[in-house]
């Protein structure tokens, strides 16, 4: 059985944007990791950034600071 928890999920228009997010989070020690875009969000393929809900403010600030445009920001079971 797959364990599921509610998480913050950020999706991107391109793989490159997801990689930018991963690089920035790694460099700044921010929370999260790359996951496949959950089916509950979209049937599209692609990479998403998954983190704890409480990391949302810090992650969104980081994205604004570095001009990363999200495709969507969700809270869902993953």
């Amino acid at each position: 059985m797959i364990k599921r928890q509610e998480r913050l999920v950020i999706t991107f228009y391109t793989t490159t944007a997801a990689m930018t997010m991963e690089r920035l989070c790694k460099e700044s020690g921010a929370d999260g990791r790359i996951i496949p875009v959950p089916g509950s969000i979209s049937a599209d393929c692609g990479l998403a950034w998954c983190a704890k809900n409480e990391s949302e403010d810090a992650l969104l600030a980081l994205m604004v600071q570095h001009s990363i445009t999200p495709q969507g920001i969700y809270h869902c079971l993953v």
Binding site: F12, Y13, T14, T15, A43, D44, C45, G46, L47
Partner: peptide, 13 residues
Amino acid sequence: GVQTYLRSHPPQM
């Protein structure tokens, strides 16, 4: 690898 159900190729660089 992204936006699979879009009929056109994704416009983002």
